[in-house]
Design a protein around this nucleic acid. Structure first.
Length: 984
RNA sequence: GCCGGGGUGGUGGAACUGGUAGACACGCAGGACUUAAAAUCCUGUGAGCCGAAACGCUCGUACGGGUUCGAUUCCCGUCCCCGGUACCA
């Protein structure tokens, strides 16, 4: 009986499903362990071999932890709201729920084929109303809370109202919009309901606001910063522009500091933490007010933020962002035209334009302001290197200390004043040093950096002209999308003011609409819903929530997925607490992982969850990239063109070099010379060459299966002529034609590139195909064997036979290949066999604990090689080997477990074997000896010598002396790793 | 530019706290079994040198230095690749 993976895997997957082997319940007799995968978006392309990499690793962890006696929660679900399903709906009119449903079932069946130990009874889908009911519920809590700086946590908005009633704005220290309103208790109580509500929006965690957003006309929606890459949308690659729109926003900035400090408490990869730190971007500095020079006594004060207040005496100009609210107000009549032109021009520039050229641009407003320290008058400019959205949208220009300011000053002929005696070459470039002492700097002349900064901030604070300030790069997150396929926002508008719907009416379900496009008036698709009004009277919010809403809390829903009264019961949360091990891609560093931490902190403040951080440990698996094959092709028209020009009949090139035709020899030569296309082009200018992607599943080792290629893709290649290694091949009119009949299989001139795996790149490898051929256990082991989990690596099948052979070899420890006769015996294992076993236990345990999944596979291979060499078929050894291997290869081990006489399904509840160090001790001391750094020989030590003695070097010295026949070494170093070093 | 990660045979990779670099696997070459193939098993496989062989020698972890009895590992400098981010004042 040979190892038959197809039969075995099907059988056990069925068994696990029928017996709910991996169903998990609260069990207070065991410690809990929560292993979470980042749930996928169920795309239409299905699962590819890159997806399971992380899932396999987390499954190994889960199974390992079960063997170690933990009660393991290991769920899976789907982040099922998203753009592709909606785009498909726009094209076909099919409701996105249907597409999503189909895609999910494909995903589930593919996952089940790999033999994951998920508790499928806990599956969640973000697009399920029973799920998004709670996403909406959390949104309502956010609307109903504000961040109180004194309590340093979120508090109910009622608390804020009560304080306003008693003491007005002075009674409150809370996170608020930029301009903090000031009013008395009387003012507040005299306000209308509408006025009060509008004021409260400045404090709520979620609120509508007019803001510049990334508007993507191609997708018809706004995108968050992390959904935009290089000025185009991450999905679809459409251009993105800046647009002022009314949007819901999330006050994530309230948590900026806690998001930063929390990073120190979690075991996440350092690079990822660093990325989050940069994204939050804390800068410590000062804000300073510059008064506009004017006859009026109530002149404007321009506030700037700077991290280098010490350079204030070097200010020679002031710059505002073109979008700054006072831009026009500050413009003198003479400059009006120039300024207006500049503002218009700046607004027309897209992100892409801005990145493409970094020319210095700007315009003088005609106004001046006064440096509060030097009392000098400096000109005010507008320039687009100043960003409206950061700090105050205004910058003091210090050309001697800042390169951008230097460029600007040079361009506009503004003075460059040195302010530190250590500054060098400032007529060539800016010098941002903090060394040295200040010059040309009034009250700080002669001081050093730290003292100067403190002095200045003190001076400014005393006169209320500025203060020490902390500035974050992090901005409030835009929380609406002009889309259909997302969670409806549980808000209606009365008198233009947003109110929450009643909690009892959750979930607010998506209404049916006829088309998934914006309305004729430009409103989001939900504007099409007939009679969709709150209490038949009030307009609902028409935008939906962004993709990250549903994924920002999902790990709690797995704890108690069917609950109708809470997002999860207190009992479930008390038991499961939080995620112990979270596995997913690092591309979510500044999106999902930041938003999730934010929501979790909010829920913690409300007392609903026990931990400040939702995931104690996180690991980023690397991406498995696809290998895309490209073929050099000729445009069919090239031949036609040639035919017309030269009036010759088109000759299909043959093996021999005819005029104007490339011979196989030439191609061979060019193929290896590297720059093939360039050479072909120069030789045959009338031929038009191009490069064509080839679907990877028709190619093995540069050899293309032409028949299958053309039959699966009849239209794709119909106008292509491929350069084939020994002749030409072209596809036209639906039928492949060959230059000569012996061309089979055809060798194309191909080259490959490593890219992200995606359907459109034709480089997707489906795990089902590999499972069919080698089995899920082989796939699982091979993906782990491929290299360190955290590394990105291109998919290749080169080594898969090695893991497959390993499993067959393992099988042969139990069964005779041909006869199927069982081999195991009840005989007592020998010391040597026990040594193999215990060494394996030790290594497997250590390596899994330090997440070195690839070396574990090697350890298994070595063990099986050793046991085969020893012809060891002892049940006592094999039984433990099965448990060790079970996390990696669950199917084959289940099968053999039962074959050895154990009850079906019990291996997952077995105990991980404990290694006994006595089997691992070295039998003899024989150490290599190095003399002056070179290995000379092995030196035998007395067996009765203790390790401590050896390591102290005392006895070693005597022994070495004896061995060296009396020569006394200067120094003998004995190191733990069995080397004796002698210096003569 | 800045931040982070990395560079080891023909290939994927191993070497955990500095201790005989290249485990394990693929590939390749040779052999056994077989009519043959598949499967399986055995041997060899970093480069070079000496030699009939054995023993042995030299070089070798991107490059150049340093610390150390000893460096893939630690330090300094350079080059290259990958990921993130960017007029953030």
């Amino acid at each position: 009986m040979e190892y038959n993976h197809r039969e075995i895997e099907k059988k056990w997957q069925q068994f696990w499903e029928n017996n709910q082997t991996y169903k998990t319940d609260i069990d207070h007799n065991k410690p809990k362990y929560y292993v979470l995968d980042m749930f996928p978006y169920p795309s239409g392309a299905g699962l590819h071999v890159g997806h399971p990499l992380g899932y396999i690793a987390s499954d190994i962890i889960s199974r390992y932890k079960r063997l170690k006696g933990f009660n393991v929660l290991h769920p899976m679900g789907f982040d099922s709201f998203g753009l592709p399903a909606e785009q498909y709906a726009i094209q076909t009119g099919q409701h996105p729920a249907i597409t999503t449903e189909q895609n999910i079932s494909t995903f589930i069946s593919q996952m089940k084929n790999i033999g994951f130990s998920y508790d499928w009874s806990r599956e969640v889908r973000t697009s399920d109303p029973n799920y998004y009911k709670w996403t909406q519920w959390i949104f309502m809590q956010l609307f109903n809370h504000y961040y109180d700086k004194d309590a340093d946590k979120a508090l109910p908005i009622n608390h804020l109202v009560a304080q306003f009633e008693k003491g007005g704005s002075a009674a409150v220290n809370a996170v608020c919009d930029e301009e903090t309103p000031e009013f008395t208790a009387e003012d507040w109580n005299a306000m209308s309901e509408k006025e009060q509500q509008i004021l409260l929006l400045k404090y709520r965690f979620t609120f509508p606001e007019e803001s510049y957003v990334n508007w993507c006309p191609g997708l018809g929606t706004v995108l968050s910063n992390d959904e935009v890459k290089d000025g185009v949308s991450e999905r679809g690659g459409f251009p993105v522009e800046r647009k002022l729109m009314k949007q819901w926003a999330m006050r994530i900035t309230a948590y900026a500091d806690r998001l930063l400090t929390g990073l120190d408490t979690i075991d996440w990869p350092e690079p990822l933490k660093e990325q989050q730190r940069n994204w939050i971007g804390k800068s410590v500095g000062a804000s300073v007010k510059f008064k506009v020079a004017s006859e009026n006594s109530d002149a404007l004060n321009i506030e700037v933020f700077t991290t280098r207040v010490d350079t204030i005496y070097g200010v020679s100009f002031m710059v505002l962002a073109p979008e700054h609210e006072w831009a026009l107000e500050l413009t003198t009549p003479e400059q009006k035209e120039a300024v207006e032109t500049y503002i218009k021009w700046a607004a027309s520039r897209s992100e892409v334009d801005r990145m493409a050229e970094k020319k210095v641009t700007g315009v003088f407003t005609g106004s001046y302001c006064i440096n509060p320290l030097s009392e000098e008058k400096v000109p005010i400019f507008l320039a687009d290197y100043v960003l409206a959205g950061y700090g105050t949208g205004a910058v003091m220009g210090v050309p001697s200390g800042d390169q951008r300011d230097w460029n600007f000053a040079t361009n506009f002929g503004l003075p460059i004043v040195p302010i530190l005696d250590s500054q060098k070459d400032i007529d060539q470039q800016a010098d941002n040093t903090k060394e040295g002492t200040y010059i040309n700097s009034g009250i700080i002349n002669g001081m050093t950096y730290k003292k100067a900064t403190d002095t200045l901030i003190g001076w400014l604070e005393e006169r209320k002209l500025g203060k020490g300030k902390v500035q974050y790069r992090l901005r409030n997150a835009v929380f609406s999308r002009q889309r259909y396929w997302g969670e409806p926002v549980p808000v209606y508008f009365k008198d233009d003011v947003p109110y929450l719907i009643d909690e009892s009416e959750l979930p607010l379900e998506l209404p049916k609409i006829d088309k998934y496009l914006p309305t004729e008036t430009g409103e989001p698709p939900l504007g099409r819903a007939e009679g969709w009004k709150y209490k038949n009277e009030y307009e609902y919010e028409l935008s939906t929530m962004p993709g990250w809403a549903g994924s920002s809390w999902y790990w709690y829903r797995y704890m108690d997925p069917q609950n109708n009264d809470a997002f999860a019961s207190k009992e479930a949360i008390d038991y499961w607490q939080r995620v112990d091990f979270y596995l997913g891609g690092s591309e979510h560093a500044t999106g999902h992982l930041l938003y999730s931490r934010f929501w979790n902190k909010f829920l913690k403040d409300l007392g609903l969850v026990p931990h400040e951080e939702f995931a104690a440990k996180l690991l980023n698996q690397g991406m498995i990239q696809g290998v895309t094959e490209f073929a050099y092709c000729l445009k069919r028209e090239s031949f036609i063109y040639k035919e017309q020009i030269e009036g010759k009949e088109l000759v299909i090139p043959t093996l021999h070099g005819n005029e104007g035709i490339i011979s196989a020899d030439e191609i061979e030569e060019l193929f290896f010379s590297g720059d093939m296309i360039e050479e072909l082009k120069s030789k045959y200018p009338s031929f038009e060459f191009y490069v064509q992607r080839l679907p990877i599943n028709h190619i093995t080792n540069n050899t293309v299966n032409v028949e299958s290629l053309i039959s699966k893709n009849p239209f794709r290649f119909k106008s292509s002529i491929f350069v084939v290694k020994n002749g030409w091949w072209y596809a036209g009119g639906g039928q492949p034609k060959f230059s000569n009949s012996i061309l089979e299989p055809a060798k194309f001139l191909t080259y490959s590139e490593v890219e992200k795996m995606s359907k459109s790149k034709l480089n997707v490898v489906n795990p089902d195909d590999i499972i069919e051929k080698y089995g899920a256990d082989t796939l699982r082991m091979y993906e782990m064997f491929l290299g360190p989990l955290t590394d990105a690596k291109p998919w290749n099948m080169n080594g898969i036979s090695g893991t497959f052979n390993f499993l067959r070899k393992f099988w042969r420890l139990f069964f005779e290949d041909q006869s199927g006769k069982q081999k195991w015996t009840d005989a007592e294992p020998t010391a040597e066999e026990l040594k193999v076993l215990h060494r394996t236990i030790k290594r497997v345990e250590e390596d899994i604990e330090r997440l070195s999944f690839n070396t574990v596979v090697s350890t298994f291979m070595i063990a099986v090689n050793d046991l085969s060499d020893l012809k060891c078929h002892k049940k006592a050894i094999l039984q433990d080997m099965l448990i060790l291997l079970a996390p990696y290869a669950p199917h084959i081990t289940e099968e053999l477990w039962v074959a050895l006489g154990n009850e079906a399904g019990t291996i997952s509840a077995a105990s991980f074997p404990v290694f006994n160090p006595k089997y691992l001790e070295e039998s003899a001391f024989e150490y290599p000896i190095q003399i002056n750094g070179k290995v000379r020989a092995n030196i035998p030590f007395p067996v009765d010598m203790s390790k401590e003695d050896i390591e102290q070097g005392v006895l070693a010295n005597e022994t070495v002396q004896k061995w060296l026949e009396g020569k006394a070494p200067k120094k003998v170093v004995v190191v733990p790793k069995r080397i004796v070093n002698v210096v003569l």
